[in-house]
Amino acid sequence: MREYLAKIDWNNTLKNKTATECWNILKSEIDCVVDKFVPLKKQGKRSKKKHLSKEAIRKIKYKQMMWKTYRHTGSEEDYSIYKEALNQATAEIRNSKRSYEQKKAFNIKHDSKSFYAYVRSKQKVQDKVGPLEGNDGNIITEGFLMAENLNEYFSSVFTREDISILTRT
C-alpha cells in the first residue's frame, strides 16, 4: 500500500485545489488502495445442527433474549427467568437430540448410509489411509501417488476372467 501511494505524484494531483477537494481526492485514493490490497474476511458458514427441532431453536432464542434482558437490567427476577429459560432450552435440546438419534436408529434398515454417516461424525479419530508401500518398495506419502497406487492394485485384483475356460474343465 505504501509503495502504491508513494508512486502517486501528490504535488501535481493536489495542486491548485481547495482543502475540501484535496481531502476528497486523498480519501478516494485511500479507499481505492484499501479495496485493492486489504483482503476481506470470509464469513464462515454456520451449519444448522440437524438434531435441533423447531421447538428447541425457539427455546434457545428465548433463552438468549432473556439473557440480554438480565444483562440490561441486572435484576434478580430477570435472572431467575433466564435460569428457567436455560433449563427449558437444555432439556429441549437433550430431548431433540435423543429423538433424532432414535429416528436414525429406527430407520437403519431403510437408510443405513445416513445412520453410519452420523455415527462417523461423532468419532473423535478419523480413519486415514497411508502411507503405502509402492511396487518398487518405496514408501508413498503423497495423496495423488497413493490414489494411483491403490487404483493400480484394485484394477489388478478386480479383472474380468474368461468364464468359458472355467466351465470346460
Rank of each mutant, 00 (worst) to 15 (best):
E161R: 14
S114G: 01
F37L: 07
G134D: 11
G134L: 08
K45Y: 00
V119A: 13
S47F: 13
H72P: 05
R120Q: 15
Q64W: 04
T167Y: 02
A147K: 08
K124N: 05
L14E: 04
A56P: 08
K15S: 09
E133K: 15
E29H: 13
D127A: 15
K61E: 05
F158G: 05
K97D: 03
K103H: 08
L145G: 00
V129L: 13
I139L: 02
Y153P: 05
I60R: 02
N151Y: 11
I30G: 09
L5Q: 03
V157L: 13
T169R: 15
T159R: 02
P39Q: 02
T90K: 13
K45S: 10
K68N: 10
F154S: 04
Y118Q: 10
R2I: 09
K61S: 05
N11M: 15
K83N: 04
E161D: 12
I57W: 05
R58K: 15
F144S: 13
I108M: 13
K54T: 04
E148M: 02
L26C: 15
N95Y: 07
I60E: 00
V38A: 09
N24H: 11
W23F: 12
I163Q: 10
Y4V: 15
K113S: 14
K27L: 03
P39V: 06
I60T: 07
I165Y: 01
E76L: 00
K63L: 04
D31Q: 11
H51R: 07
V129T: 14
D136R: 11
S99K: 12
I163D: 14
S164D: 12
K109S: 14
F106S: 15
P131Q: 03
I139F: 01
I57S: 03
N138K: 14
K7F: 11
T159A: 06
D162Q: 09
Y118R: 12
S121E: 06
Y118V: 10
G134E: 07
A6T: 11
A117I: 09
W67K: 09
E29M: 12
E92T: 03
Y79N: 10
A117S: 12
S28V: 09
R160Y: 12
Q123T: 12
I163C: 08
E29F: 12
E84R: 03
Y82I: 06
R160F: 14
T90A: 13
N107C: 01
S114W: 01
K63R: 00
E3D: 11
E161Y: 11
N149K: 12
